[in-house]
Amino acid sequence: MHPSLTHIALHVPDLDACVHFYEHFCGMHIVHERSGKGSRIVWLAETGNEHRLIFVLMPGGTVRNLASDDYSHFGFALASREQVDEIAIKAQQAGCLVWAPRDEPYPVGYYCGVRDPAGNNVEFSYGQPLGSGSDAFTSA
C-alpha cells in the first residue's frame, strides 16, 4: 500500500477571506461545506481535481507571521510566464505580493509569491517539472 496525499487542512483566522482568496487567486471552488465542531468547514479544489487534492479550511486559526526568509508555501503551476505576471499584478494591487516575479534555474522556473489572508505564502510558477508548463523546461 502506498499512501496518497488527498488534502491539506488549515485553521484560518478569517474563513470567508481565505475562501475568497483561493477562489480569486487560485481558481479553486467550494466542493463541500458543512457545520462541524461548532463552526463552518469548507473544502476547496481545482476543477478536475475534486477527488485528488483539496484544501480543508476551518475557522479558529491565527495569522502566521512568517519571517522574511521563510519560504514555506503552497505551490500552484500556471500555463505561462504571462499568467505569473498577471497574478503578480493582481496581488500587487491587492497588497499581498511578497515575491515579485523572478527566474531561477531549473527546476524552479519563473515564479512569484503571494500571501493569503492567514499569512501563508502561495507560489505561482511556470516551468517547473510539475503541473502546467512542465514540458517547457528540460533538465540542463
Rank of each mutant, 00 (worst) to 15 (best):
D135I: 09
R52A: 09
T138I: 12
S134C: 07
P129I: 03
I30D: 08
Q93P: 00
Y110K: 00
M28N: 06
T62K: 12
H24C: 10
R40N: 10
E123C: 06
A67R: 15
N49G: 14
S72Q: 14
N120T: 14
E86K: 03
M58I: 09
Y110S: 01
I87F: 03
V31E: 10
Y106H: 07
Y22L: 04
V19S: 04
I54G: 10
A100H: 09
P129F: 05
S139N: 12
D70E: 13
D103Y: 07
V98Y: 10
T138S: 13
E104Y: 14
V19E: 03
S39L: 11
D69V: 12
S4F: 09
K37F: 15
D116H: 07
Q128M: 09
L78F: 06
S35P: 08
E82W: 06
F74H: 08
V31I: 14
V19I: 13
F124W: 06
F25T: 02
V84F: 05
V19P: 00
L53D: 05
S4N: 08
S132H: 11
G75I: 02
P117K: 05
A9L: 03
W99T: 11
R64A: 11
G131E: 01
C112Y: 01
Q93F: 07
G113L: 12
R102F: 14
H2A: 06
D135A: 14
V56L: 11
F55H: 04
L10S: 04
R115V: 07
A136D: 02
K90P: 00
P59Y: 12
L130Q: 05
T6K: 13
V114A: 03
R64G: 03
G109S: 01
V108I: 15
S35H: 12
I8L: 11
H32W: 10
I89T: 12
S4A: 09
G127R: 00
I30R: 15
P107N: 12
P59M: 06
F124S: 01
F124Q: 00
G133H: 00
Y110G: 01
V31Q: 09
E123I: 06
L5H: 11
F55V: 04
T62M: 10
A140E: 13
E50F: 10
S35Y: 08
L78D: 01
P3C: 14
A17G: 05
A94K: 02
V114H: 01
E46N: 14
G27R: 07
E50M: 04
R64Q: 15
H7E: 13
C26E: 06
G95T: 01
G48Q: 05
V42Q: 05
S134W: 02
T138Y: 13
V108A: 12
H11V: 03
F137I: 01
L97G: 00
E104F: 08
Q92T: 15
F74D: 02
E82C: 03
I30L: 14
I41M: 15
L44Q: 04
